[in-house]
């Protein structure tokens, strides 16, 4: 293919502009430091950092991980150094790279969320990803994100203070994700990301104890992919704001599948534990698919599913 026809991978997710649609998923990539030893972070479109809270959090008791067929359950519980240390220490590190910074923000109360948005609006980041979907904390997170009134109140209050593109991350642990998605859109979200982990559980039959110290945890990895593709497809059809898809993506082909279902960009998490190069490799594989199929602009892939 001649140079002029090289696939154009740039995307604009409601003001979040990235050179390609591949983002490292929150909680699986720390603040980027660890994987900077493995590949050049500038190869990625974006990095969504570990879920941040106002104050540092020490997280849940171990064990925090259990492996299940094709997936993992985690119950980290938002361990993080707090938003101020993130701004002070981690943004300057990430800014050495040509990669968009998504600040994944959580809180226990409505006021926490609003404060987080105010603080992060003044920080040198490219997007705020409101995490209304963490299954591993007692208060906040998923409790807001699993009801329409909950999501409406948090998103509309945050919207008032937000001076960055506002992405809202949805939980799959609801009866009808399209209702939640529509509520987030109506409350002022610029874009949506989904899915967070599916609430799950595993028991060690020898000891009769739950494997996770927190009993329940969130399922991610290849095992959740069909559910995630389905939800991305349903949500993309229900709203008119861009959707970022994730859940079990392990290759460029998987990423393409999410884009065909309607995603404007994708995030990759768990698969990176097995092969850290899946993050940068997926970018090239998406380009390869586009060239093979004659797509010049990656944005044309979004929703290009051919329905029966």
């Amino acid at each position: 293919m001649p140079e002029a026809m090289k696939a154009d991978l740039r995307v604009d997710v409601a003001g979040l502009r990235m050179k390609n649609p591949v983002i490292a998923a929150s909680g699986t990539f720390g603040f980027g430091r660890e994987y900077a030893d493995y590949f050049d972070l500038s190869l990625l479109g974006g990095v969504s950092v570990k879920g941040l809270t106002l104050e540092p959090r020490r997280g849940n008791r171990p064990p925090r991980i259990a492996e299940t067929p094709g997936g993992i359950l985690n119950s980290v519980g938002l361990q993080n150094p707090g938003v101020h240390k993130f701004i002070e220490r981690e943004i300057p590190f990430l800014r050495q790279y040509d990669v968009a910074i998504l600040a994944n923000a959580s809180g226990s109360t409505l006021e926490d969320y609003v404060s987080m948005v105010e603080i992060l609006s003044d920080a040198d980041i490219d997007c705020i990803e409101l995490n209304l979907s963490c299954p591993n904390v007692k208060q906040g997170g998923m409790t807001f994100g699993s009801s329409c009134p909950g999501i409406t109140s948090v998103v509309s209050e945050c919207r008032k203070k937000c001076r960055k593109p506002l992405m809202v991350k949805l939980t799959p642990n609801v009866t009808d994700i399209t209702e939640i998605a529509k509520a987030a859109e109506a409350a002022g979200a610029d874009s949506l990301s989904l899915i967070n982990t599916l609430l799950g559980m595993a028991i060690d039959i020898e000891t009769r104890r739950p494997i996770l110290g927190n009993t329940m945890g969130g399922l991610s990895g290849p095992a959740v992919k069909p559910i995630a593709v389905r939800m991305v497809w349903q949500v993309a059809n229900a709203v008119s704001i861009p959707v970022v898809g994730m859940g079990g993506i392990s290759s460029g082909s998987d990423a393409v599948e999410f884009m065909l279902a309607g995603a404007a960009a994708v995030m990759i998490g768990t698969a990176g534990f097995v092969d850290p190069l899946v993050w940068p490799k997926s970018v090239g594989e998406i380009a390869g698919y586009m060239e093979k199929k004659g797509f010049a602009d990656v944005q044309a892939l979004s929703g290009a599913i051919r329905l029966w």
């Binding site: 699986t28 720390g30 660890e34 994987y35 997280g59 064990p63 361990q79 850290p276």
Partner: peptide
Amino acid sequence: EQRMGCGVGACLVCAC
């Protein structure tokens, strides 16, 4: 010893 995810310090599951 602890059960691990990433092995490099990125996922915070191997808590002690």
